[in-house]
Write a protein that binds this DNA or RNA. Sequence first.
DNA 1: TAGATTGTTAATCGATTAACAATC
DNA 2: TAGATTGTTAATCGATTAACAATC
Lengths: 207, 207
Amino acid sequence: MVENFTPDIVIGRLPLYLRSLQQMEKEKRHTTSSQEIGERLGISAAQIRKDLSQFGEFGKQGTGYDINNLIMELRKILKVDRVWDMAVVGAGDIGSAIARYQGFADRGYRVSMVFDVDPEKIGGRIGAFIVEDMDKIEERIKEKGIEIAMIAVPAAKAQEVSDLLVKSGIKALLNYAPISINVPDIVKVQYIDPVIHLQRMTFYLSI
Amino acid sequence: MVENFTPDIVIGRLPLYLRSLQQMEKEKRHTTSSQEIGERLGISAAQIRKDLSQFGEFGKQGTGYDINNLIMELRKILKVDRVWDMAVVGAGDIGSAIARYQGFADRGYRVSMVFDVDPEKIGGRIGAFIVEDMDKIEERIKEKGIEIAMIAVPAAKAQEVSDLLVKSGIKALLNYAPISINVPDIVKVQYIDPVIHLQRMTFYLSI
DNA sequence: TAGATTGTTAATCGATTAACAATC
DNA sequence: TAGATTGTTAATCGATTAACAATC
């Protein structure tokens, strides 16, 4: 049997292609080419064609790709031809900004619940949500069948919250706390830490 | 002449090493090994040793690395043995969360100014800052000699804001708007778009 | 048709890892 | 000393690119 394994690094670029295509769609464009996508993203045209060819033949010689069609195909591949409900844990500044973020719309995700431990916050409103008690998190996540959570608690609490989320059945974690967390192999983790990105840039700045 | 070029992918890992080491420092630890750092980050010990060897010999056979010393060295390499002032552009939910973020402390950065175009926001307070008028941004950035900015405006305005920041002398941009921006080669850009990370994970989720 | 662009192959390039002498 | 761990080399592994036949 031939395994159809796609490298992680290829998967990592697909969302960028999708974002560019959705941008073009907004600009009322109808077709594009691997070259144009590449120019927008700073990636070679050959690489984009190679990446896409892992999943099928989506283009036409001479004319390129139909934007709407390729968007549809990428949505299927990335499993965002549906909407995923997410739980936000932590109702501080970051958690609140996430809960109110407009950028999830049309990209496959929506915030469904917001949790905190602070009795002052529980029961209060953040955007369209009522902040729920973290003591109820396992019950609520299981009841709703939620598989994705975003961690927006202090670094010192992130591992503990992560353990609880895994126990609750979460399969994908986006961690805003500036710390590495350990999860079982079946759970995916991604990190957002602005300082990491800043340090990647200041290396190149002259003092 | 032998160029001492360090691959971007190596630079990208150094901030992770630094973050792990600072975590260990907080735990009152004094020495560590490439193996331990690797385990915390899911990176091989050999790779960590190889990465560090690009910059010097920081360890001791048999005992490993002195945590405080390695932190100091990495800070020097990444140029965070100083504090960089940053401008935040956009005083919405994301801009406000950034302006109040406590996670910059001790990691080499601090927010110095916050800008917006909205007359309702200008003059108002966000954390320790008074929101300033974006019409003054070039003048203010040049006057303070700021080289790093964070973009937290709607996607439709991000390119325009980026152009203005480059014109103002900014050399590093952290873009929270979910869109690719074009800048001259001398300017570094990094992106924070939660949806990109989410899509990298849902690919692996079973429906 | 002529020009453009795909999908794919093979070659190149670069990154990771295994292994080990050196040495603390 | 014996055990541990570094820094480095060479081998392996994987990713990127150049090139082009196919074809719209």
